[in-house]
Design a protein around this nucleic acid. Structure first.
Lengths: 174, 174
DNA sequence: GGGCGAGTGTCTAAAATTTAGACGTTCTGC
DNA sequence: GCAGAACGTCTAAATTTTAGACACTCGCCC
């Protein structure tokens, strides 16, 4: 099978890394692991990485997930298209919400269910392939904007940065 | 102040509704509440609603949040632009993730912190007002697509549904 | 009721963009 | 080292966008 490209797993616990490596061996072409979050950007610069699995807590005794969030943001800043799945031992809803709002693709809690983990990772990578045409994107954005302006086309056109006539045009076409 | 429009709060516990009403009185122009999720779409059809706060569990003893997810999807199907904030007593990360993936704007756990609750609701509504110009949206989508195609402009142009020359044009301009 | 500002729908002519197609060059995988 | 793919550039025709103008309809306030 080996169809899911390269995955990078970041966790300060080497036992976790080993377990992940064993579990995902048959699903990914190449598995990279590191205990050092500082390595992430370096590794990503060296080769294309399709998916990052990132632990949320690195500093022993500090478990608010801030360090994970920090690295999440760093990854997304450099590679906005690379999906990041967060991993944490602590079932903290607020942290999960923060993570997803910062662009994480999914959230997995330790201990994980093997099948569910693989399923989630596959889902994330399958999802990534949805690129829509510029027209569709435009149509959707226009619909949203008009809705936002409660149907006021003049205002919508201004927000969109186009003339009212152009908005009429596009509405007729799309 | 009263600048944050109409809010609809849905929870089967009337004590919660009363507390919310009291808490949010000075923040919203109009506060609607109901214990019946069936009423949601009816109320939303009758008047414009700017924000929905939705409890996740209605059937006593069933706490997997499925009912909340069901109504969340129903709301978003009819009113994709209306933000929905989920409310739950159970700090369930998986449920939060599911909720946010189904389009919820945020997630609040009971018992809540009053200031944090108001802050989150305001954030959600402030967020909604960010409409970007068509050009910016286009630029962003083009950047994403090119990234997705690993820099292959021919493929990116095809995915975007425009000619390669047009893509060059747009890249030069944006 | 009259005035008024805002939004609508429509039009024109000029300016700008997009298109299909072609061309030679460069990159890349095998 | 070759073939196919991608690149960068060009043209001329088709289409779209623009600014500006016009008459019309609302809702609102005096």
């Amino acid at each position: 099978m080996n169809k899911y490209g390269t995955i990078l797993i970041v966790d300060d616990n080497t036992a976790i890394l080993t377990a992940m490596r064993y579990l995902l061996d048959s699903t990914f072409e190449l598995i990279l692991t590191t205990t050092q979050p500082d390595d992430i950007l370096k590794l990503m610069a060296q080769q294309p990485i399709d998916l990052v699995v990132l632990d949320m807590n690195f500093t022993l005794g500090v478990n608010n997930g801030n360090e994970g969030l920090f690295w999440l943001r760093a990854i997304r800043k450099q590679h906005p298209e690379t999906p990041v799945v967060l991993l944490t031992a602590y079932a903290d809803v607020n942290l999960a919400v923060k993570g997803l709002k910062n662009g994480a693709s999914d959230f997995i809690t330790k201990p994980w269910d093997n099948d569910e983990l693989i399923h989630k990772l596959k889902d994330v990578l399958d999802m990534k392939n949805e690129i829509v045409s510029l027209d569709e994107m435009e149509k959707e954005h226009i619909r949203r904007t008009i809705d936002h302006c409660h149907g006021n086309l003049t205002q919508a056109a201004e927000l969109l940065g186009i003339t009212r006539q152009t908005l009429y045009n596009k509405m007729k076409r799309l």
